[in-house]
Amino acid sequence: MLRGPGVVTAHIGVVTFPGSLDDRDAARAIEIAGADAVPLWHGEADLRGVDAVILPGGFSYGDYLRAGAISRFAPVMGRVIEAANSGMPVLGICNGFQVLCESHLLPGAMIRNAHLHFVCRDQGLTVENSGTAWTRAFTQGQRITIPIKNQDGQYMADARTLDEVEAEGRVVFRYAGGNPNGSARDIAGVTNAVGNVVGLMPHPEHAVEPGFGPDSVEGGRTGTDGLGFFRSALETLMAKA
């Protein structure tokens, strides 16, 4: 966890798959939050000693077969799954969420948006679980706004799984102000039983810097609600260290 002379921070890896688009945005968000971003490559079964991993958004393998289905078997994913099962914080954003569902690290799956259109807009979310490794900087019930952009974003699971996930408090985010893709029970993000693995469809890494984020009450493009995700991970890791 050492970086530079006497500066302690956490190292958060970002995996690049063929077709990942938001890996550099995720790395930038990590740096803005004060952690060290480490690039990881899908073809290498090596996590390079990182303390946490982000699977970024994009269209890995062109969404062929099913979104995330081929990436799930990339060499790096074996290590990510091992690490996730040993408690390492792992965040899947959009395509990364699809990869985590295909890996069965998170329950459910994503299918085509109910209205069949690609959706791209600022999206309101309610924080339903502020106890995970990626949400502790938020307060329970907090309303945040970050961008969403997807085609296969409809979260789906059978009723029994949904009941179970709800009962265990594993719904981390719910869509607020309109469900953009038909997701079951307005679910935008979920976590595993322990709370170290989180996946969500919207993009926190696109809301970390004034001038480039969603509109907020402060003014146009000033929203930085996404920063909370990366600060949460940093807090979680520094608390452990």
């Binding site: 299918i111 085509r112 109910a114 209205h115 409809q154 789906m156 059978d158």
Partner: peptide
């Protein structure tokens, strides 16, 4: 699966 919505 038969009980899931098939948007396509």
């Amino acid at each position: 699966k038969p009980d899931l919505l098939d948007p396509q």
